[in-house]
Amino acid sequence: MAAENDDAGIVGVRERKRAHSRATTVDAALTLFAERGYDEVTVADICEAAQIAPRTFFRYFPSREDVLAEPARQMAARLTSAITAAPQQLDDAAALDHALRTLAGYVVDHRERLALFLRVAEESAASRPSPFLQLADRERDVAVRLLARRGALPPVGWRTRLVVARAVATFRVWLDDVVTGELPDPLGHLDEVLAAR
């Protein structure tokens, strides 16, 4: 029994180190992209700044584009996880609002990093696809997750897709306000924006 706990502890430490190394790599990449421009930064530059070997970089990310898209991927994963964790008695719209409020807490806690990410993504959009590409696919994934909460199977009806599209658009408006301005109460502002939908 003690050996199993030791193994679990080792795996936990490894996973934390790996997560820390990934986050450091993303931060180094975002900083370089902001300073030099996306097209002027190589994987070797990122590895040097993050103090990792190229082999380690490619273990985490298949490409430079993937390292830039990582903050969007993390936000999408947090949103789908929060939808799954939403109280079962909530309808789709309320479950989605609950999940967006959970995601908003993460955004507020990581505001500077996400502001940098959004700036870099916008500046590099002319030369490469946006990390928010496939927004319709992400919305469809969220809609499928909402169906799964209630034990339904695809296809997703237009009403559910419309609930998701409105919520995502509302969140994007709030996100713009959060990263570009100094809101005294960002989470209160989210409630206001969600109520105005």
Results as ranks from 00 to 15, higher is better:
135 L>Q: 15
173 V>G: 08
98 H>W: 11
93 A>Y: 00
141 D>I: 04
180 T>E: 08
65 E>D: 13
195 A>F: 03
27 D>C: 05
174 W>R: 06
103 L>Y: 00
17 K>Y: 05
4 E>S: 11
123 E>K: 08
7 D>M: 02
94 A>T: 03
134 Q>Y: 07
10 I>K: 12
13 V>A: 11
48 E>W: 02
67 V>Y: 05
58 F>S: 05
184 P>R: 12
161 R>I: 04
89 Q>C: 04
19 A>Q: 15
116 L>A: 09
24 T>C: 08
69 A>L: 00
18 R>K: 12
86 A>C: 03
44 A>C: 00
108 V>I: 09
142 V>G: 03
28 A>S: 14
118 L>C: 01
189 H>F: 12
138 R>N: 07
87 P>T: 02
30 L>Q: 10
147 L>I: 04
83 I>A: 01
35 E>F: 08
150 R>A: 05
191 D>F: 01
91 D>P: 09
109 D>I: 02
124 S>Y: 06
29 A>M: 03
32 L>F: 08
110 H>I: 00
88 Q>M: 06
169 A>G: 04
15 E>V: 09
124 S>A: 15
115 A>M: 02
77 A>H: 14
142 V>L: 02
130 S>F: 09
130 S>E: 12
169 A>E: 04
186 P>A: 07
62 P>Q: 02
190 L>V: 11
77 A>L: 14
8 A>G: 03
162 L>R: 05
150 R>H: 09
89 Q>P: 01
16 R>P: 00
167 A>M: 07
194 L>W: 00
60 Y>P: 01
129 P>N: 13
40 E>S: 12
83 I>K: 04
130 S>G: 14
194 L>H: 12
76 A>F: 04
101 R>F: 00
42 T>M: 06
143 A>D: 09
184 P>C: 01
143 A>L: 13
95 A>S: 11
31 T>P: 08
62 P>M: 01
76 A>G: 15
33 F>K: 07
57 F>P: 10
66 D>Q: 14
129 P>T: 12
92 D>W: 01
81 S>G: 10
49 A>N: 06
189 H>W: 12
20 H>K: 15
128 R>I: 03
174 W>S: 07
82 A>R: 10
48 E>L: 05
156 V>Q: 15
2 A>G: 05
154 P>V: 11
74 Q>N: 11
129 P>A: 15
53 A>V: 11
16 R>Y: 10
161 R>P: 05
100 L>M: 03
19 A>S: 11
57 F>S: 09
174 W>V: 10
54 P>Y: 04
187 L>S: 10
77 A>S: 13
11 V>A: 15
15 E>Y: 10
169 A>N: 14
30 L>D: 03
90 L>G: 03
80 T>M: 09
110 H>P: 07
37 G>H: 15
50 A>M: 05
126 A>N: 10
1 M>L: 01
112 E>N: 13
21 S>D: 06
91 D>S: 10
145 R>W: 06
135 L>V: 13
34 A>C: 06
26 V>T: 02
104 A>T: 05
21 S>P: 02
157 G>L: 04
75 M>P: 03
35 E>D: 09
32 L>R: 12
14 R>D: 07
140 R>L: 06
129 P>R: 13
93 A>R: 14
169 A>H: 08
127 S>K: 15
116 L>P: 05
147 L>Y: 00
79 L>Y: 07
186 P>H: 04
121 A>V: 01
130 S>H: 15
160 T>Y: 11
192 E>I: 07
185 D>G: 10
11 V>T: 10
159 R>G: 05
153 L>T: 12
35 E>Q: 14
